[in-house]
């Protein structure tokens, strides 16, 4: 990655924030652009914000939502909250993993196209089982419909 471009991007993100420079919000904005938090961003942020590298790492690893490794172009989040779980969300997860050659440890395809992960609740229990692709909601899914959806994304 071109660090110069990254630094410029981070500068813009920091400047857009209030003077208090909330670290979580800044990390969210960086993740929004790069779909993950690049290693180089930490060193630059540490210097820019005067916060230790270990503290930023601490915050980034505390929240499940932050990723330290690159994510796919399409981030598929399968809801595994109680409602979705009892309406069989796990078979959907298994089907997607099998189709994309992913597992619990490996959740992003090598071509950086897809990331498959679970979330605890999307707050759309009435639509269970539900999944989102890059924050777009797909209700009442089945394993078959999920595979079909993959085809549409391509």
């Amino acid at each position: 990655m071109d660090n110069k471009e990254l630094y410029q991007q981070i500068d813009e993100i920091i400047n857009a924030q209030s003077s208090e420079k909330p670290i979580v919000a800044i990390l969210q904005d960086i993740q929004e652009v790069y779909r993950y938090l690049p290693r180089e961003a930490f060193d630059y942020l540490s210097e820019k914000l005067g916060v230790s590298l270990a503290k930023i790492y601490s915050i980034a690893t505390f929240y499940e939502n932050f990723s330290l490794s690159p994510k796919g172009k399409y981030v598929i989040k399968i809801c595994d909250g109680t409602a979705c779980h009892v309406r069989k969300s796990i078979p959907i997860l298994d089907a997607l993993r099998k189709e994309l050659g992913l597992s619990g440890e490996k959740n992003t395809t090598d071509d950086l196209m897809y990331t498959v992960e679970t979330v605890s609740c999307l707050g759309a229990c009435g639509l269970a089982p539900v999944l989102t692709v890059n924050d777009k909601v797909y209700p009442a899914m089945t394993p078959e419909k999920a595979i079909e959806l993959l085809g549409e994304l391509k």
Binding site: R39, S52, L53, A54, Y57, S58, T61, F62
Partner: peptide
């Protein structure tokens, strides 16, 4: 005012470590 170590992760996985688990000698 050094902050070479901090908490990382959460819950039962929480640990005190350096950023990115670097060897402490390579930190500040």
């Amino acid at each position: 005012n050094v902050g070479a170590i901090d908490f990382a992760h959460r819950g039962s996985k929480m640990e005190v470590t350096t950023a990115f688990n670097m060897p402490i000698a390579e930190t500040n």
